[in-house]
Amino acid sequence: MSTLVLIPARLASTRLPGKPISDIAGKPMIVRVAEQATAAHLGRVVVAVDAQETFDAVVAHGFEAVMTRVGHESGSDRIHEALTLLDPTGTVDTIVNVQGDLPTVEPAIIRAAVDLLDDPLVDIGTLGVDITREEEKTNKNVVKIVGSPTAKNRLRALYFTRATAPWGQGPLYHHVGLYAYRRRALERFVSLSPSTLERRESLEQLRALEDGMRIDVALVDAVPLGVDTAEDLERARELLSRN
């Protein structure tokens, strides 16, 4: 399969303005993400930007960028536009959406999401991590996966929720929002209107499940640090300054 790794980068973050170009140990955060994505050795890596500042920062560090519209509602919409610009003839089979605020994401877990598409019945691959901290089990900002095991370290997703689920004894899994799409699945997804449960939970992946698409989950060892606040940014700087 021909694989394209896309990293959506929206400059106008509400909680952390200018987030993609924030400095982390001498490099913009978006460049740190591009480095990790490139190290996964999956194929072409392109940052889908919406501002000239981000475009210039990416290119200055030797990576490829494509300009997309400002008004996209989600990263999925942005990467779909980028796909149509970069591959209008449809040669790419697999699209990987690596969030632009994951500067410590491990290349191995990016590959793990793509490996799920070895099963021809799977439309979308994503990631999950066993929740070990009690406070995270009831935290609405920690999205949980309700899934049925299909193999070791692999689930078929049945639902995603901000609630504490499923009930009863057993592990709970934290969803990591990194996705590998078959091209037809991404095209189908962005053609759909936001679904009922998607709106209720504020989780766009529910749109795919409600439309009958299959999402499988690779269970990995650790949640990559997501940078949403100034405190997260300082943590990322601390971690990467050690390298």
Rank of each mutant, 00 (worst) to 15 (best):
L4M: 04
I7V: 15
A9V: 13
L11H: 12
A12L: 03
A12T: 11
L16T: 10
P17L: 03
K19H: 09
K19Q: 15
P20M: 05
I21K: 10
I24P: 08
I24Q: 06
A25V: 13
A25Q: 06
K27R: 14
K27P: 02
P28C: 14
P28T: 12
E35T: 13
A37T: 13
A39D: 11
R44L: 06
V45C: 06
V49T: 15
Q52W: 10
Q52M: 11
F55G: 04
V59A: 13
H61C: 12
E64N: 08
A65S: 05
V66E: 12
V66G: 12
T68A: 10
R69C: 09
R69K: 12
S74C: 10
S74W: 14
S76H: 07
S76E: 06
I79D: 01
A82M: 07
L83P: 02
L86E: 05
D87S: 11
P88R: 10
P88D: 09
T91P: 04
T91D: 13
D93H: 13
D93P: 09
D93E: 15
V96M: 01
V96I: 08
D101N: 03
T104Y: 04
V105G: 11
E106D: 15
P107W: 11
A108E: 11
A112S: 15
A112N: 07
D115F: 00
L116I: 11
L116C: 11
L117I: 02
L121P: 00
I124A: 01
G125T: 08
T126S: 09
L127A: 06
V129H: 03
I131G: 12
E135W: 02
T138P: 03
T138W: 07
K140F: 08
N141L: 06
V142E: 02
G147K: 00
N153I: 02
N153K: 11
L155Y: 06
F160L: 03
R162H: 12
A165T: 02
W167H: 06
L172R: 15
Y173D: 02
L178Q: 14
Y179F: 09
R184N: 09
R184F: 12
A185W: 05
E187N: 12
F189T: 02
F189P: 01
S191Y: 13
L192P: 00
S193F: 07
P194E: 04
T196M: 07
A208N: 00
A208L: 01
D211W: 07
M213Y: 05
I215Y: 03
I215M: 04
A218W: 08
D221K: 02
D221E: 13
A222N: 08
V223Q: 13
L225E: 10
G226F: 05
V227E: 01
D228R: 03
A230H: 14
E231T: 14
E238P: 04
L240P: 05
R242L: 13
R242K: 15
